[in-house]
Write a protein that binds this DNA or RNA. Structure first.
Length: 107
DNA sequence: CCATTGACGAAGA
DNA sequence: TTCTTCGCCAATG
């Protein structure tokens, strides 16, 4: 297989596969896609890529919400809360409990 | 085709 | 302990 181009494909598939009420980290997604060091690529794809995917379920390794989300952290936070995820922190520093909401495709 | 970006991660100061 | 810097590699312009 040629994982190179499939990277974005894997990212899209994984993000779409994240069940409601769960989240995944960029690093984990990158690792599952074959490039553990391409965490930025995931974020890059998210930025360049379509908004058609549940990017609001994707958080950074600290469980913090993304910093360039199209609707801002408050938008992503609202989306997560809307799915039953408890979001802690204040404006600009939202975060979720990875211990509780982190999801894995093998799960 | 070349240069720059990018919503991260981990290490260093 | 927090802040800063480097590295990673794909996608966009």
């Amino acid at each position: 297989m040629q994982p190179s181009r499939q990277f974005s494909e894997n990212v899209y598939a994984l993000v779409e596969c994240i069940p409601k009420g769960r989240v995944m980290t960029y690093g984990q997604i990158a690792g599952l896609c074959g490039n553990a060091r391409a965490a930025r690529i995931v974020g890059g794809i998210a930025h360049y890529g379509p908004v058609s995917l549940p990017w609001h379920r994707v958080v950074n390794r600290s469980g913090g919400l993304a910093n360039g989300y199209y609707g801002g952290q408050e938008g992503q936070k609202a989306a997560l809360v809307n799915e039953g995820v408890e979001v802690f922190g204040d404006s600009g520093d939202y975060k979720v409990l990875l211990e509780t909401y982190l999801w894995s495709p093998n799960s």
